[in-house]
């Protein structure tokens, strides 16, 4: 059969009247559509149950014991580990640091990511190179980034040298050794690494903004800010929701960079819930207390991210 023949046959088939579907056929199709997919899910679901859910539930049970992570014996202590957490001044400090980090990263990273996305969503020739360059830090492992910035932020490191070179000696600082600013130095490192990641998600959203609507608003006399606020922003709502959720969850769970750069110090000035969980479980031999903290962190992440999702959903951010 020639190509022309097959094309005309396809057109004829498409144009042919569709035979009426009987009620029983419709029912059968609906049943098939409704029932078939879960068979495919079973292997993945059972794998998930074995590898993730069951070990997690087993691990969570230790929060209600006094197990030290090594001994053969453990006693059920009820909620005693959670009560300890409430009375632990280190725990309260870590919660505060965790929230500060999560909020700062969420705001700054997304603001910078959005500005970068708007910048590279343009007609400039080097936009593709810029997109790759700005996204590159996101593919480096957080541990490597932590070591890199720890080195750059030493008292004699590149940052202070650059400041000195440009005559900004007054701004030179002990970035990780000063308890008042070490937390913000870590935030800056995380923002540097993941602003490009946020940028990519915003960029995907920006590419979905209809060009004709933008053009119409331009003809109607809307300036750049009004165009962004009334045309671009509503279209970006899903991207904003995803970015905010990812960055707040990442901020709440942050461990690698903090551990590599300061190990929670100086003193306890950069301790987060994650570093405290690690210290208690593995350095203090207080395993069950560490697990109790991990459960609280999990609840924290779940509540905050769900609340944020619902809130943004009401504003059309989950469409």
């Amino acid at each position: 059969m020639s190509t022309a023949d097959s094309q005309s046959l396809a057109v004829a088939e498409a144009a042919a009247p569709v035979p009426p579907v009987s009620r029983s056929t419709r029912k059968f199709t609906a049943r098939r559509i409704g029932t078939v997919p879960w068979w495919f899910v079973v292997p993945a679901l059972v794998f998930f149950l074995f590898v993730v859910l069951w070990p997690s539930v087993q691990g969570a049970a230790y929060a209600f014991t006094n197990w030290d992570g090594l001994s053969a014996t453990k006693d059920f202590v009820g909620l005693a580990q959670f009560e300890r957490l409430l009375k632990d001044p280190g725990g309260v400090g870590a919660v505060v640091h965790t929230l500060l980090i999560a909020v700062a990263i969420t705001v700054v990273q997304n603001l910078i990511g959005l500005l970068l996305a708007l910048g590279v969503h343009s007609k400039i020739k080097s936009r593709n190179i810029l997109r790759v360059a700005l996204f590159t830090p996101a593919v480096i492992t957080p541990v490597a980034t932590g070591y890199l910035w720890k080195y750059l932020m030493t008292p004699d490191g590149a940052i202070n040298q650059l400041l000195g070179f440009f005559g900004l000696g007054a701004l030179q600082h002990d970035w990780l050794g000063d308890a008042d600013i070490a937390l913000w130095s870590i935030v800056a490192t995380v923002v540097w690494q993941f602003a490009g990641y946020s940028m990519v998600i915003f960029l995907a959203g920006l590419q979905g903004v209809p060009e004709d609507v933008l053009e119409a608003s331009r003809i109607d006399g809307a300036g750049p800010f009004r165009r962004f606020w009334y045309v671009v922003r509503p279209e970006l709502a899903p991207a904003i929701t995803i970015n905010l959720m990812l960055s707040i969850i990442g901020g709440l769970k942050l461990f690698d960079q903090v551990w590599v750069m300061t190990s929670g110090g100086p003193g306890t000035s950069t301790d987060t819930m994650s570093t405290l969980i690690y210290k208690n479980a593995f350095q203090f031999g207080d395993f069950s207390y560490g697990i109790a903290m991990a459960l609280v962190l999990t609840a924290f992440v779940a509540i905050l991210s769900t609340a944020q999702y619902k809130l943004l959903g009401k504003q059309g951010g989950t469409k």
């Binding site: 932020m153 008292p155 002990d174 970035w175 990780l176 050794g177 000063d178 110090g265």
Partner: peptide, 8 residues
């Protein structure tokens, strides 16, 4: 030295 807490 000046910054012992920033020195490893």
């Amino acid at each position: 030295q000046a910054n012992p807490l920033g020195t490893d």
